[in-house]
Design a protein around this nucleic acid. Structure first.
Lengths: 197, 197
DNA sequence: GTAGTATGTGAGCGAACATTCACTCATGGT
DNA sequence: ACCATGAGTGAATGTTCGCTCACATACTAC
């Protein structure tokens, strides 16, 4: 038995990866990806540095996987949601509620996607499911059918996300405790007020 | 004369600092602060690393000065603008146009303030002029005078910025060439539509 | 001239960092 | 009882990067 040997508490492998994901996500949001070291993550998670590399080939891959997996999942859900509704109004309603629910379910994950969007965006290929593409398409379709006035095209497109995202952002930066879902009705109403000019 | 000596083209010191500022700002926006090295900045600016340290004591100070100087200047201008107007509607109008003008005047600087807000926010002290504080106050005052309905308080506060910022953001991320100022009328109308429910 | 000051330079330093790898050992199959 | 497997470990390694400094050059004052 070597002098370096220690007790090794084996845990469920599934649990270890989840532990890494949760810890990394939290630290990435708190400090940013670049300011978070592998040592930060591993010590906060109570694992060894090498353990992290059993699950991810690099810190960059870890950050990217946490982003892309959830980014595309969100886009796919949004797309499926849109297929269930016909009118623009119903789609906007569903979209905003989807954002609100997602925020309330996991505010840290939501913050991560929001805050790291710019940094990760260069790796997003056009073939990846993308919330922005989904939203552009349905705004365009709604406008083609005359459901919203064409003159407000650009404002309208930015607005749908603008309303809900900025309430969310003010919560990420602020200390508000209230859930976003509780505000969904007001947000839907506000967005629609802008669009049906 | 040492074997290492080279021609040294002395330039206007004022120009050198501006060169550093412009180059650093551009790279910070393109790659993020953490991913931009001193070597990146100096080589892109065509100066030596040491030269940068003649003008800034550290990379952190450089990033912070580029942020805080413009962040507070923007807040001060916004505050002065508000003092010139009485009604909430006039203030919102002026605010949105101010944002649009600022964006058009220097899109890179605007992007920097937007993208690095989260990272730099921890250094913003309460006594510093702050756009958010200015906006909170005038929304609160407008609501106290009954100019907008109290029930939409949270939405309203997020909206004023939400509308204009998200059009701006979609331009930062997108490839749109059109100026923001050209859209100012539509944005003002959209914001007001939400607020006067 | 020469002394003094301001500015520019880039090789080199050291600390921080991501990543590797030889090793340990709990577990499950035979 | 024995072995095979692979998750877990953390000291060691090589690299990156912010920053320093000895020196070079230019400008100013005398």
């Amino acid at each position: 038995m070597s002098e370096h040997s220690l007790m090794v508490a084996m845990r469920d492998p599934k649990y270890t990866k989840e532990l890494i994901d949760e810890t990394a996500l939290r630290l990435f949001v708190e400090k940013g990806i670049a300011e978070t070291t592998i040592r930060d993550i591993s010590s906060a998670a109570g694992i060894a540095e090498g353990t992290l590399y059993r699950h991810y080939v690099s810190k960059e891959h870890l950050a990217w996987e946490l982003f892309s997996k959830n980014f595309t999942a969100f886009a796919v859900e949004l797309d499926q949601l849109h297929r269930k509704h016909d009118t623009l109004k119903a789609k906007i309603d569903a979209t905003i509620r989807h954002y609100c629910t997602f925020f309330d379910k996991d505010p840290i994950l939501f913050s991560y996607l929001l805050l790291e969007l710019h940094g990760q965006l260069r790796k997003v290929t056009p073939d990846m499911p993308n919330p922005v593409t989904v939203l552009r398409r349905f705004i365009g379709e709604g406008m083609a059918r005359g459901e919203i006035p064409r003159k407000d095209r650009e404002i309208a497109a930015a607005m749908v996300l603008g309303v809900v995202l900025h309430v969310a952002v003010s919560k990420v930066y602020g200390r508000t405790k209230q859930s976003l879902t509780a505000l969904a009705d007001s947000i839907v109403a506000a967005a629609w007020r802008v669009l049906e000019a």
